[in-house]
Simulated assay, not measured.
Amino acid sequence: MSRQDFEQDWVPYRDALMSRWPQLSDSDLEDADGSTAELAKLIAAHEGTSPGEAQQALHEFLGGPMPADAYADPTHDDAAVRESEGYIPAGEDALADDRRFGDDDRDDNPVGRDR
């Protein structure tokens, strides 16, 4: 995950942030509105740490894996499609004929019938 992703659209990160820093409220996040500096100040005030320490913790958090809610956001669809090739085994063609894996050679059953 990147700070740029967070600054552009922080809403999908809401639940992950509130899990990491349970003392944050929705209004805190709305007040910060994607600004990591403002959010760090709020975290520091709640935790009683310095803004620098809070900002470092926030940057470490944002440097980790993207929360599932944020990854599933439609704005990340293109990136998800590009990364999906990592799940295809070596030598496998993504567009290969997959008849051996399913029932492509059989007619569909009429609705409501077993045969």
Rank of each mutant, 00 (worst) to 15 (best):
K41A: 06
G34C: 06
S84Y: 13
P89C: 09
A40N: 01
S35R: 01
E53F: 01
A72Y: 14
L39N: 00
D108V: 09
Q23Y: 08
W21E: 01
H46C: 05
D105K: 06
E38P: 01
E7D: 06
R115L: 10
V111D: 05
D114A: 09
D114W: 15
L24G: 02
A16N: 05
N109C: 06
G52W: 02
A79N: 07
L29H: 03
A16D: 05
D77I: 15
E83H: 12
R115M: 05
D93Q: 08
A57H: 00
P12T: 10
D15G: 04
G52R: 07
H59Q: 12
D78L: 12
V81T: 14
A40E: 00
P12M: 09
D103I: 03
A94K: 14
D69P: 05
Y13Q: 00
D28Q: 04
K41I: 04
R100M: 06
A45K: 02
R113W: 11
L24Y: 02
M1F: 10
D105T: 08
T75H: 12
Q56A: 10
M1P: 06
R115H: 13
M66H: 08
D73C: 11
D108P: 05
G63A: 13
S27T: 05
A94E: 15
A90F: 11
E60R: 08
M1A: 10
G63P: 04
A37C: 04
Y87V: 10
A45V: 00
V111K: 05
A72M: 12
D69Q: 08
A37S: 13
E85G: 15
A96Y: 03
R115K: 10
S25K: 12
L62T: 00
W10P: 09
S2H: 08
R3H: 06
F6A: 02
P65D: 15
A68G: 03
F61Y: 12
E7K: 13
A45R: 01
Q23I: 07
Q55R: 10
A80T: 07
R20Q: 14
E53W: 00
A94C: 08
A44C: 06
A16C: 07
R82P: 12
V81C: 12
I43P: 00
D9W: 08
D114I: 10
R3Q: 08
D114F: 14
D104V: 10
G48I: 00
D5Y: 09
E53D: 13
D78V: 15
P51M: 03
S25D: 11
R100I: 05
R115P: 07
T36L: 04
Y87G: 12
G91F: 07
G86F: 10
I88S: 12
D97V: 13
Q56M: 09
L29N: 03
M66K: 15
D77L: 15
G112Q: 05
R113M: 14
D107R: 13
L29W: 02
E30M: 05
A68P: 02
A90C: 07
E47M: 02
S27Q: 04
Y71M: 07
S25C: 06
A68V: 07
D97E: 14
P12S: 15
P74F: 14
K41H: 05
G63Y: 01
D98E: 11
